[in-house]
């Protein structure tokens, strides 16, 4: 059976992606680095830079520690108007096996709600993931969120 037909693998990957979104949307951000391997990469990049093959990211964490530092910073140092996200995930596809893991892509839409109630479509885009199994559990070896718009409204503090 190929990975394409492996429903239990698909469901496990789907669950990892949902868990990632729920940790953010439910404000359990401190748990987020735990979904990555220690040397895992997390990047948020605009589609503009991605398509132009330019290396710049909006957020570039090379290692789970850098992501953990970002979470600590947004809790303790950064100043911004309180807001929450709602992730809508769809179109998850396992693109292929790679080494001991899998390449996966999916789509996302993130609605941002400010404390005073105004809502906006903050970001839409695609996740490109490399997922591996570490001690029985699936983890992100790499998660790249490619946002469709080149524009970020006001600021980006909570990971997408």
């Amino acid at each position: 059976m190929g990975f394409e037909d492996d429903l239990s693998l698909r469901s496990e990957i789907d669950n990892l992606c949902a868990q990632y979104a729920h940790l953010i949307d439910d404000d359990w951000l401190e748990e987020l680095p735990g979904l990555f391997t220690r040397d895992g990469i997390y990047r948020v990049q605009t589609r503009e830079n991605h398509d132009l093959k330019l290396p710049l990211s909006l957020i570039y964490c090379n290692g789970a520690d850098m992501l953990a530092d970002r979470i600590t910073a947004l809790r303790t140092a950064n100043i911004y108007e309180p807001h929450v996200y709602c992730h809508m995930l769809s179109a998850l596809r396992i693109l292929g096996g790679e080494g001991a893991g899998w390449r996966v892509r999916s789509n996302f839409v993130v609605v941002r709600t400010m404390a005073e109630g105004s809502q906006s479509l903050f970001a839409s885009g695609r996740y490109f993931d490399r997922i591996v199994r570490v001690e029985g559990a699936l983890k992100f070896q790499e998660r790249i969120a490619i946002v469709d718009s080149r524009q970020i409204d006001t600021l980006l503090v909570i990971p997408l």
Binding site: A77, I79, T154, L156
Partner: peptide, 17 residues
């Protein structure tokens, strides 16, 4: 560049203030 830009750890505040 994690420090600067719209998600910059030392610059994002300039986006909202």
């Amino acid at each position: 560049n994690n420090l600067v830009g719209p998600a910059g750890l030392i610059s994002m505040e300039d986006g909202c203030v």
